[in-house]
């Protein structure tokens, strides 16, 4: 019997028991994989359901109109007010400050890495930038409180110890690698022949980078911006440590403020009894946070689709 015949006979003369075992094994693997998918899907559904039910019961006690229009947020005081605006304002300051730091620096780094840097430099600098992403946010929080704030206070002595400026700068630093790394991926993916065509027309590196490569990779760059901004909105540790816990309807970054995330931490850490109105506030705030990031993601996808250029 030669080799091919041997192989063939082995394949076809498999005992029935073995065939059955194989089928069971396949079914087990299928179920295990499906189970893993279901765990994450069901978790998401569970979180959303609990958010919705608790938020619903919150709005049975506090009218939606008051929640949206009242300018004070004092659920922890005797004189309770449930106006979300101060927390939104606090989050907004952090978001704007962090974007002002991260988007220009991140984009400039991406342009440098994708067009200017020699391969050797790129190989060293890119991972170094990505190390920034691996630093625990609590370390960033300490960095903001114990280094950036004192530094800023040498220039602005009136600034309070807990302030939005320091926190937003550090949140910005934290999301730089997200912007630079994802943008750089998008820019590097721009077909090489486009750069060559630019150079072949006598354009300089800067013109090729800004007028050809950047517009061509714009969808990826915008996606990186939106992801980074979502991250800044959801960032908790830095703002809890450095931005203070004073819900205040202000846009002045030198004051102590409170963001939505920091408020949730404050209440969760305390001994708030289950079922009280204070307990329910964190679900309402969490729901709003969820809706904002969801909206960001949807806008991000729409913008990406709008600006996507098709290359064959």
């Amino acid at each position: 019997m030669n080799v091919t015949e041997e192989v063939r006979s082995v394949e076809f003369e498999l005992p029935a028991a073995k065939v059955r075992m194989r089928k069971i094994k396949e079914r087990l693997i299928y179920s295990a994989l499906l189970g893993c998918v279901l765990i994450s899907v069901l978790t998401t559904v569970g979180i959303i359901l609990s958010l919705i039910t608790e938020t619903f019961s919150f709005f049975q006690e506090v009218p939606l109109g008051q929640f949206l229009t009242d300018t004070r947020w004092t659920p922890l005081f005797a004189d309770k007010h449930f106006g979300i605006m101060p927390l939104v304002a606090g989050t907004l300051i952090i978001l704007v400050g962090a974007s002002l730091v991260a988007l220009p620096i991140g984009l400039a780094s991406a342009l440098y890495l994708s067009t200017y840097a020699k391969p050797g430099v790129r190989k060293v600098v890119k991972p170094l930038l990505e190390v920034l992403a691996g630093i625990p946010t609590v370390v960033y929080g300490y960095f903001a409180l114990t280094f950036v704030t004192p530094l800023l206070r040498t220039f602005i002595p009136d600034m309070s110890i807990f302030n939005a400026l320091s926190a937003s700068i550090v949140v910005g630093i934290m999301i730089i690698p997200m912007v630079s790394s994802l943008s750089e991926d998008a820019l590097v993916a721009v077909p090489h022949s486009l750069r060559e065509a630019g150079f072949a027309l006598g354009a300089t590196k800067f013109e090729v980078a800004t007028k050809i490569v950047l517009p061509a990779g714009l969808s990826g760059v915008i996606a990186s911006f939106i992801l980074a901004i979502s991250r800044a909105i959801g960032e908790t540790m830095i703002v809890t440590l450095a931005a203070g816990s004073t819900p205040k309807l202000t846009l002045n970054p030198l004051e102590s403020i409170q963001t939505m995330t920091a408020y949730i931490v404050q209440v969760s850490m305390g001994d708030t009894p289950h079922g009280t109105i204070v307990y329910k506030t964190i679900f309402a705030v969490g729901m709003l946070l969820f809706l904002i990031t969801l909206a960001m993601n949807i806008i991000g996808q729409m913008v990406t689709r709008r600006y996507r250029e098709v290359y064959e």
Binding site: P191, S193, L194, E196, A197, G198, F199, A200, L201, G202, A203, T204, K211, I212, P215, A216, L218, E309, E312
Partner: peptide
């Protein structure tokens, strides 16, 4: 001057590569 040289000697590439504009 590379810019002037490349203006004098134009080039068209293998695959059509219009700029994204």
């Amino acid at each position: 001057d590379l810019a002037i040289l490349r203006r004098k000697v134009g080039m068209v590439f293998q695959h059509p590569n219009p700029f994204p504009m």
